[in-house]
Design a protein around this nucleic acid. Sequence first.
DNA 1: TAAAAATACTCCATAGGTATTTTAT
DNA 2: ATAAAATACCTATGGAGTATTTTTA
Lengths: 300, 300
Amino acid sequence: MAGFSIKQLRYFEALALHGHFGHAAEASAISQPALSVQIKDLEQSMGMQLFERSARQVRLTPFGEAFATRVREILHRVDALDDFARAAQGRLTGRFRLGVIPTIAPYLLPRLIGNLGKSHPRLDLHVRETLTPRLVQELLQGRIDTAIVALPVSEPSLFEMPLFKENFVLVRPEKDAGKPAPRASELREMRLLLLEEGHCFRDQALNFCNAPSAVPRDGLDGSSLSTLVQMVGAGIGVTMIPEMAMGVETRSAQVNCVAFDDPQPGRTIGLVWRASNPLAEAFEEIGEVVRQSESAATTG
Amino acid sequence: MAGFSIKQLRYFEALALHGHFGHAAEASAISQPALSVQIKDLEQSMGMQLFERSARQVRLTPFGEAFATRVREILHRVDALDDFARAAQGRLTGRFRLGVIPTIAPYLLPRLIGNLGKSHPRLDLHVRETLTPRLVQELLQGRIDTAIVALPVSEPSLFEMPLFKENFVLVRPEKDAGKPAPRASELREMRLLLLEEGHCFRDQALNFCNAPSAVPRDGLDGSSLSTLVQMVGAGIGVTMIPEMAMGVETRSAQVNCVAFDDPQPGRTIGLVWRASNPLAEAFEEIGEVVRQSESAATTG
DNA sequence: TAAAAATACTCCATAGGTATTTTAT
DNA sequence: ATAAAATACCTATGGAGTATTTTTA
């Protein structure tokens, strides 16, 4: 195993440059004997003489010259590594793997990606869209860095940063426009179309109706909010969607949206990451960007 | 200035590989706390966290991953440097600059170059042909590594390795063939053609005639042995050349060569180098090759 | 509770300083 | 005689060990 140190290589480089122990030592901010010893040790660990000493001259041996070019190459990379670390200081760098649940992704990501590109131009963003349980699992395995999900996830090793609260709105056939918003109890009597099993949004909606354990009913479950809205437009029933989805999903369908009376149903969306992840500060910045992207998406 | 050590980089690499302080420490042949401390120090000197620690997992941070690829690159080069030194062990490597005096060069070099190519295939041989004083000067300045000259050079900082003794022979017009070899005193009476001022061979020849201070005589000095021999062939006078030059120089001229009676005139040829040069051993090997090249040249 | 990393401390190797000697010009 | 490198010796920093505590799953 190589027994020399970076320090020794630096001293070597200085001596090769100055050709004089005294001057090289001064340039290296150590004493001349210290330099002598280090050079001698380096030569010993190499098993080769690097310098030819005479009373007035210190010269590289031919081997020393070949050695010097390699040493310079190494020191150059060492310095570059140092610079690299200094440049990355505190900033989020390299690959950033973000998970997002399906009932958020299509409405938030377009703006979020744009905003992240501006705020963190060096970021290599990877997006994973899947259901909360899988996101949590991938977080714990270190396969993604953070995830945007509905809080709480209540996983002890995950840290949760609340971002915003989003309300749910009722989506009903266009002919119902003008009618008052139904209350939870009334909603239970209507044909409520829901996302299929597994989506947290399904549970959140059912929860509002005080029917948390509703079983799947054939033909009344959709695999996306988009599908549900289309079904409502076709007169099959009513559904609930997050505010954020309104703009995109109800534009092309013959449906009417109405907010519920207080207390409005809704959920808290947040950013989660492993509590052990040292990049908390950077993630909070990311969370801030997500928050801005949401408010723009809802307002606009 | 980069404050980390090669050791720390090795520990880092081990931990990145094993993802476990205990195992990485074992692989690095140090204790777990020692590894912990070194990694912590490395992170501190980088100002960035390299690993994310949780109770069951040690993972590289995104920055740590980018760091790792650079570290591996550096360690690879460090190992290569070590291998390079180990491979060069004792051997002469790289550029080898050899000076040769003009009265030796043309006769010795053809064989010497061939032989050196066989015995030291990695050698990058540079040959400098010039007069002794300049060779000595260039040796002292470190512009050449060794020189083949007539001994002694009597320069205190130069080491002299005697290689072989070469005798001088008389070159006279072909019509003189059969006559006995002249003695030194007789030679002084003949028109002796010599090399121009500066060649050591001129002084060595004059020395034999006991006329060390002979002044230049217009038209009787030549700039090369070849010229002198041609002049002899033209009947202008006689000259002396080293044995080794006989084969080449007298082949095409109408001249006769004869050895002198004992004590024969001659000179000792040797290899010289700076006494401070640590490659003495290697140079003695080179000298041995020169010696072999000479005997082959004289015999053949 | 168990496994793993961090901390506390102690020790020793060694890098580096000062004073001096050796060497070569 | 002088300039420069090597050596001797001492000190102090810090790398590494053992024992222990803290943390988290």
